[in-house]
């Protein structure tokens, strides 16, 4: 079996970077969104929920294809980025980050939302009677109680981004160090009949995914006991 080459290691590094940046951004976006979804009674809550969940059911290539068109020179986003002198997003790391954030959104929002909903009103009301302000209630009561949800969200969003393929394939252009992530590298190796290198990377991916899920279930078990 021929071993993996430096460009494969670069792909591994790039994948970890993409997954980290995506997860970080998702936490920033998903937390307020999940909070709102957990507490809102607005009529359009269902609409927002459906939009957030859409990447769960859409084939990633569909998402990738529309992002490619949207970010292209005739797309709304493409015209906007051009007007702002930001250049175009397809074939860039930034473009992949945006695609990944959308793609992994439900995996971050839903666990956090479930955690917020599980807390219920009572602890927050109690905190309110102790004169905790809204912000204080959120930071000192809701966030700690929702920690298992955050943990699940982080792991799922990270792992899901690592495993992302369709969106990257459509948007990426396979540029080493910029958009050539692990899943695309594996795909290229298989297509080029370099099965040795494909095995190394694909096997590593299986191991990684297994460890991540293992961690999730063990940690999940622990927080379950704590909750009881």
């Amino acid at each position: 079996m021929n071993p993996i080459d430096p460009s494969d290691l670069q792909a591994v590094w790039l994948t970890l970077k993409l997954a980290s940046v995506t997860t970080f951004l998702l936490l920033l976006i998903a937390t307020p969104l999940a909070w709102w979804l957990a507490h809102s009674r607005k009529w359009y809550k269902g609409l927002v929920s459906a939009l957030v969940a859409l990447p769960l059911v859409l084939p990633p290539t569909v998402l990738g294809f529309y992002l490619l068109l949207l970010m292209g020179p005739h797309g709304v986003v493409g015209e906007l980025t051009s007007a702002l002198n930001l250049g175009r997003l397809p074939f860039t790391f930034t473009g992949l980050v945006i695609g990944s954030v959308l793609f992994s959104m439900p995996f971050a929002v839903q666990p956090i939302q479930n955690a917020f909903e599980a807390i219920g009103k009572r602890p927050l009301e109690v905190a309110a009677t102790l004169r905790a302000g809204m912000w204080d209630r959120f930071i000192s009561v809701a966030l700690p109680l929702a920690r298992p949800g955050f943990f699940t969200a982080i792991i799922l969003a990270f792992a899901h981004t690592v495993g992302e393929f369709g969106v990257v394939l459509m948007l990426g252009g396979n540029i080493p160090g910029e958009t050539r992530v692990l899943s695309v590298a594996i795909y290229s190796h298989v297509e080029a009949m370099e099965y040795g290198a494909a095995h190394w990377l694909a096997g590593g991916m299986v191991l990684f995914s297994f460890i991540v899920l293992l961690a999730l279930y063990f940690a999940g078990g622990k927080s379950w006991r704590v909750a009881r």
């Binding site: 490619l68 068109l69 970010m71 292209g72 020179p73 005739h74 175009r88």
Partner: peptide
């Protein structure tokens, strides 16, 4: 990854 995708990159003017 294929000539089809290459076409798509050009056709969409990306």
């Amino acid at each position: 990854e294929s000539i089809t995708q290459t076409y798509q990159f050009v056709a969409s003017e990306n």
